[in-house]
């Protein structure tokens, strides 16, 4: 079943909270993973793997570089979800 953009944002907020300890309400579409949310390149791999599992989507390594903000990730997941 397809997820709505609200559900994807909420799911990413949970993941970022678990991995980086950022409060879920601070995980907003315009936030940069590295600059605003304390997600370094290694932790970004964790975020991606957790998102793949949660939203049943494949995010190839080459595409991860394009995911700068939470909004980028939400758009990508909405576009590619099964």
């Amino acid at each position: 079943m397809a997820h709505t953009s609200e559900q994807v944002l909420e799911g990413l907020a949970d993941i970022v909270n678990e991995i980086a300890g950022i409060p879920t309400e601070d995980v907003q579409l315009d936030k940069s993973f590295t600059d605003d949310l304390d997600v370094d390149s290694l932790s970004m791999v964790e975020v991606v793997v957790a998102a793949e599992e949660r939203f049943e989507v494949k995010i190839p390594d080459d595409d991860v570089k394009g995911l700068k903000t939470v909004g980028d990730a939400v758009d990508y997941i909405l576009k590619h979800q099964g």
Binding site: L42, S43, V45, E46, V49, E52
Partner: peptide, 10 residues
């Protein structure tokens, strides 16, 4: 393999 933590080596 995909689930192996990227933090493993450090």
């Amino acid at each position: 393999a995909r689930r192996v933590s990227p933090h493993t080596v450090p």
